[in-house]
Design a protein around this nucleic acid. Structure first.
Lengths: 113, 113
DNA sequence: ACTTTATATAGTATTATTTATATATTCTAT
DNA sequence: ATAGAATATATAAATAATACTATATAAAGT
């Protein structure tokens, strides 16, 4: 059983923003990649096989929304997760993945389009 | 410590979709409202003070993405959460709310715009 | 049959997000 | 001072999400 979740009305906007921000495949991948510590942009770029401005753009969005932070060293920008909590959301999604693979949840609907 | 979250590459699109879908204030409110059981559209509408087509649209989006389901009875459509798991995500967000209120996390960044 | 109620669906305009491309900045090494 | 590397920023184009208005459907009551 799940206890009554009460998100305060003031916080709903923030909650939506966080979820929406993480609701992008490449950003999820970036967050996952940052899980084991800070990484410079170039490395993220290589790892995810994306062009540099795209990576910087996603990082900026996540920076503005408090999801990542960075530390500059010379010409390198080392990005890392602003917070361990972000991983909780991802681990929640990996639970979802399990449920679906066990057939306990279906994302597809009969009247899907 | 959080254990290594591993979302399979195949699932990342789905994960993003779920998060993005929940990343809307009114949809969060709807999900919260459905927490204590199925509700007909009209009641959701009254509760959230929205016009009917908006509610139906959000419900349809969430239906297509496996987040809600419904049961028709006469002219009434009773919507409910497709899954208890959805609440876990929200409860995760209510944890976030706490962290922020305790000052352990800031959503605002110096160079925010 | 006709009307009302509850809800869905369609179409559309507006706005936001995403991606791509091009350029600027800043640091480092020469 | 110049050049190269790493990254940011600006801008434009393409795409998607949102909210609104109007209309359709289907069941229930008269």
């Amino acid at each position: 059983m799940t206890s009554k979740t009460k998100i305060s009305p003031d916080f709903i906007q923030n909650a939506a923003r966080i979820l929406k921000t993480l609701g992008h495949p490449q950003r999820i991948k970036i967050v996952e990649y940052l899980e084991d510590g800070e990484k410079p942009v170039s490395q993220i770029q290589r790892n995810l096989d994306l062009i540099q401005p795209i990576v910087s753009q996603h990082l900026k969005i996540m920076l503005d929304r408090g999801i990542v932070k960075y530390r500059q060293e010379g010409t390198r920008y080392y990005y890392s997760l602003a917070n361990d909590f972000i991983l909780k959301i991802l681990s929640c999604m990996s639970d979802a993945q399990e449920m679906i693979s066990r057939g306990e949840w279906s994302l597809e609907n009969f009247n899907n389009n």
